[in-house]
């Protein structure tokens, strides 16, 4: 409102209105970030005593350590395994469900259903499916006369298996966002492309995908940030093993937390640099969309 009362009066009211949010964000978001960066300058013994200033040494040591490079590598591989897969599969589901058929709503509900699962729920479902002795997967393999597998216990397959459960859990989200956008694409665009002689695949690539650009961009960033923050599925399915093959960054931070606060802080700061940059991209994009969209 254009009324500019005395600024002091508005400042007093504004202070009261923003105080709760400022307090919480200050204590639980901004202060922790700064203190985490600060803690990275100190080393201490495993009992949390004898804190000693080491400057940037610890940052250098941790960033160059095998265990950090391993979790960074694992995390990046996890991102690469999950994000494109979830995007492509979700997009295919949406395409499949974007038909005018009797009863299509039922299929849409099924395709969207994994949105109701949490990371923990999805992980428990798959844990039981993959359970080595009585799990359904091995039952099927046995019935087919194949050897039983223990995918979560094999360093070569563990990460991909965790990724599979994550992709399954993300499908609902990708599906819901893309089908909503697909349905808002005017039918006339497809009709005109059809008149111009474009086939089904060509229409998909030349109309659907470009017009879904904003949504695909949004999903890419959200899924990527989510993958960098993965913790629950690792904790439930593999606990970082076997042989650290699934020890992603957040899992590593949590493991370090009681043992080596300084090192955990450094890893947290490094994680922030990666995720912060991605979030920044997303925020800028969202902001623009809110301003110029609709």
């Amino acid at each position: 409102m254009a009324v500019k009362r005395s600024r002091r009066r508005e400042t007093r009211l504004a202070t009261a209105l923003v105080a709760p949010a400022v307090l919480i964000l200050g204590v639980f978001v901004l202060y922790p970030l700064l203190r985490t960066a600060w803690l990275g300058f100190f080393v201490q013994d495993p009992f949390g005593r004898n804190s000693r200033w080491v400057g940037l040494d610890q940052y250098r040591d941790v960033a160059g350590s095998d265990s950090f490079l391993n979790s960074l590598g694992v995390t990046v591989r996890f991102v690469v395994l999950t994000v494109p897969t979830a995007l492509v599969l979700g997009l295919l589901l949406a395409t499949l469900a974007n038909q005018q058929l009797r009863g299509i709503r039922l299929f849409r509900i099924i395709f969207a259903s994994t949105i109701a699962t949490s990371v923990a729920v999805a992980s428990m479902l798959w844990l039981v499916l993959l359970e080595p002795s009585t799990g359904i997967v091995n039952q099927v393999l046995e019935a087919a006369g194949r050897d039983p597998v223990n995918l979560l216990n094999d360093p070569d397959t563990a990460l991909a298996t965790v990724a599979l459960t994550t992709v399954w859990q993300s499908l609902g989200l990708v599906f819901v966002v893309t089908i909503a956008a697909m349905q808002s694409i005017p039918e006339v665009l497809y009709e005109s492309a059809r008149v111009d002689g474009h086939g089904r695949v060509s229409r998909f690539l030349r109309i659907t995908v470009p017009l879904l650009g904003p949504q695909l961009m949004f999903l890419t960033v959200v899924l990527t940030i989510g993958a960098f923050q993965s913790f629950g599925q690792i904790d439930i399915l593999t606990e970082g093993g076997p042989q650290d093959s699934t020890n992603v960054m957040v899992y590593s931070i949590v493991q370090q937390l009681p043992l080596d606060r300084g090192a955990a802080s450094v890893e947290a700061v490094l994680l922030f640099l990666v995720v912060g940059a991605l979030s920044f991209v997303q925020f800028r994009w969202l902001d623009r969309r809110v301003h110029y969209g609709s």
């Binding site: 600024r7 964000l25 978001v29 922790p32 985490t36 960098f228 937390l257 979030s279």
Partner: peptide, 25 residues
Amino acid sequence: FTGRRALLAAVAASLIIPFEVTVVV
């Protein structure tokens, strides 16, 4: 109000700080 722009910036900054990063502190 005084500090409005600073607050907007602070909220925007909080937006890009994942909880996992602040978990230590």
